[in-house]
Design a protein around this nucleic acid. Structure first.
Lengths: 210, 210
DNA sequence: ACCATGCTATACAGATCTGTGAAGTCGGGG
DNA sequence: CCCCGACTTCACAGATCTGTATAGCATGGT
C-alpha cells in the first residue's frame, strides 16, 4: 500500500502513559480492531479465535503468525485501548486551561456508546492475575491515578491535603466508571463529576462540563 | 439426614435485600458451594460443568437435574452470594448504634481474603446483559445504594443534601470495591472509609474502624 | 534471478464444551 | 409392598476450543 513498510509485530506489553504507535500489517490491524470489539462486546473467554479470524477476513494461520497466541492478542488489544485512551485524554487536556482534573470525567462522558463499561476493569475481572492483560489493566488504572495527582498538582500547587483529594477524586471516578457498566447510562458519571467539582478549591457545587 | 425433608430446587432469581433461605439437597448444596468458589476464582466462562461436577463429587447428571443449566447455576451462585452479603451486613448493623453507613465499608474490610474483588462486578463484567446473573448483579448494587440512603436517613434525619451525600458515599465505596480487585490489598478501601467518615456531619477526618 | 514476507487455503490434532439418554441403586414414607 | 426422589454410571451427540502442519500465491527489495 505505501510501499516499503517494515512491519513490526506486536509483542510488547507497555503499561505506560504514552506508548509508541505500533506499525501493523494490514491484516494484523484488522485482527486487532475486530478482536478488540468482539472481546469488549462478548467477553474475552467467550470469543474464539475462529470467530475473530473469520470476522477479520483472515485465516487463523495469519492470526497466529502475527500475534503468536490468543493471550498475546488479548494483551495487544488492551495495550491498544490504553494507547487510544491516553491519546484522547491528552488531546482534551491540551486544549484546556483551568481545572484539568475534571477532564478525566469528561473523557468518559463524551463517549457516545457506553456499551459494557470499562474494558480494563472487565478484562481484569475475567482474567487471572497471571494473564499479561491483567497487568496491563492494573498499569492503566495506576497511571490514571497518578495523572490525577499530577493534574491536581499543576492546577493547585499550594493546596493542603492534595494527595487525599487526588485519591478522593480517583475513587469518585472509578466508582462511576465501574457502575456505568451496570447502569447503561451516564447519570452517575455526571453526578460524580459534579461531586468532584464541588470538592475542588475553586469549586462551586455544580456546573456541568464546558 | 433429618428425615422427611422436602427439597426445593433453586429457580428464583431474587434480587432483593432479604431473600428467603433456600433448602437444597445435599448434592445441590455442594454443587452450589463448589461452583461459587470456582466461578469466583477462575471466571465463569472459564469453568466448565465437568469440573464443577467432579469437584463436587457429583455426576453431571445430578448437576443438570438440580439446576437445569449452567446459566441457571451461575444465577443461583450469585443469588446465594447476595443472600450471604446481606446477612453479613445486617448482622453487623444489628450490633451497632451510631454512623451505620460506614458499616458497608467495614463489611468489605473484615473479609480476610480479597481474592478477585467483587463477585457481582466480575460476573457483570463477564456476562452479557441478557444473562440472568447480570440482572442479579445490577439488583445487588442498586439495593446497596438504596440501603446506604436508608442508613443515612436513619442516622441523620434532618441533614441537608442527604441524597447527594448518599450517592457520594456509594461512589466512594464502589470505587474502592472495584479497585480492590486490582490492588489485591485493602489500603484503598480503608482510605475510602476514612474519606467517607470525613464527609459525615459528625465526621472528623480519620478514626479507623471500631 | 532470488528470496523474504504477507497472506491464503485446507485439513487436522486433541481437548473441552454444554447437554441428554438409558438404566440402575438405595432409602424412606405411604 | 410399592413407589418416589436423590443420585450414580456410562455413553454419546454435536459443537467449539486453541494451535499446527503442509502447500502455495503474490509482491517487492536486493
Amino acid at each position: 500500500m505505501v510501499g516499503t513498510v517494515t512491519y513490526r509485530s506486536v509483542k510488547s506489553t507497555d503499561t505506560g502513559r504514552t506508548p509508541d504507535e505500533i506499525v501493523l500489517t494490514p491484516a494484523a490491524r484488522r485482527i486487532l480492531d475486530v478482536a478488540s470489539a468482539l472481546f469488549y462486546a462478548h467477553g474475552i473467554t467467550a470469543v474464539g479465535v475462529d470467530t475473530i479470524a473469520a470476522e477479520s477476513g483472515v485465516t487463523k494461520r495469519t492470526l497466529y503468525d502475527r500475534f503468536g497466541s490468543k493471550d498475546a492478542l488479548v494483551a495487544s488489544c488492551l495495550a491498544e485501548r490504553n494507547r487510544l485512551w491516553w491519546a484522547r485524554l491528552e488531546a482534551r487536556l491540551a486544549e484546556l486551561d483551568g481545572e484539568r482534573v475534571l477532564a478525566t470525567f469528561d473523557c468518559y462522558l463524551d463517549t457516545r456508546d457506553i456499551g459494557r463499561g470499562c474494558a480494563f476493569l472487565n478484562a481484569a475481572a475475567e482474567l487471572p492475575r497471571e494473564h499479561p492483560a491483567h497487568a496491563l489493566a492494573r498499569g492503566h488504572k495506576r497511571a490514571v491515578r497518578e495523572r490525577i495527582g499530577e493534574l491536581l498538582a499543576l492546577d493547585h500547587p499550594d493546596l493542603e491535603g492534595r494527595d487525599d483529594l487526588a485519591e478522593h477524586l480517583f475513587l469518585l471516578l472509578e466508582g462511576a466508571v465501574s457502575q456505568r457498566g451496570l447502569d447503561d447510562d451516564d447519570r452517575r458519571m455526571r453526578t460524580a463529576r459534579d461531586l468532584a467539582a464541588s470538592l475542588l478549591p475553586s469549586g462551586r457545587p455544580a456546573s456541568t462540563q464546558g
